[in-house]
Amino acid sequence: MFEGRLLQGSLLKKVLEAIKDLVTDTNFDCSETGIALQAMDSSHVALVSLLLKDTGFDHFRCDRNLALGINLQNMSKMLKCAGNDDIITLKAEDEGDTITFMFESPNQDKISDFEMKLMDIDSEHLGIPDTDYQAIVTMPSAEFQRIVRDLSSIGDTAVIGVTKEGISFSTGGDIGKANIVCRQNTNVDKEEDQTTVEIHEPVSLTFALRYLNSFTKATALSPQVTLSLSKELPIVVEYKIEKMGFLRFYLAPKIEE
């Protein structure tokens, strides 16, 4: 059987809010090392990769590898019934066709069990090659969210450029143009307010803002976001999940025809 008890249940709620509009159905792959998920959006332009390590759970048991096929909208409906401070336990039998979510209130005076039907999902995992990215930028996740939202009101695509000075986001549309530059900034009081640029070579790529906007639904998971870019490769937008792993989004670039 599989059982995972998560003291900070709100993390799971946040993960679901971040991916439920991008991916419809997906397998949660449970093994003794944790829970992993890989899924593409319906148009096969973006890929989501989630890792929740066993060590991040208060209790974790997985006797044999299980692929739990889940409709994310339905799981989101279930998790919305958990309080933000609740402890969440996931349970599934090896041969079962349901998953149980147990919610415990912080002072243990309310225990709720929700059972959700699983589905059979054929999924093939894509091999993501290890890449030495030409540019890696870490910046406040709220800042990234704001920039992407602001640019979305002006254009459909954004050019993201990285030089040793910083990262720039540009767009254009019927009403005009916009260009935002965030400079490397390591002299701030709080580490989470820093913007750091690690660069081997300047890089500039074009992406659909609609997807970038969708990724920023993960902002609540982490105060910082890391953007990794290389010429003619998908951008990686990574939100680290404290003590547990990460939520990564890969987005294919737009290329000159």
């Binding site: 993501i128 670039p253 737009k254």
Partner: peptide, 13 residues
């Protein structure tokens, strides 16, 4: 500009 698909970058097993 053309939108590339993600599967053209990552290999199926």
């Amino acid at each position: 500009m053309a939108q590339k698909g993600i599967t053209s970058f990552f290999q199926a097993p």
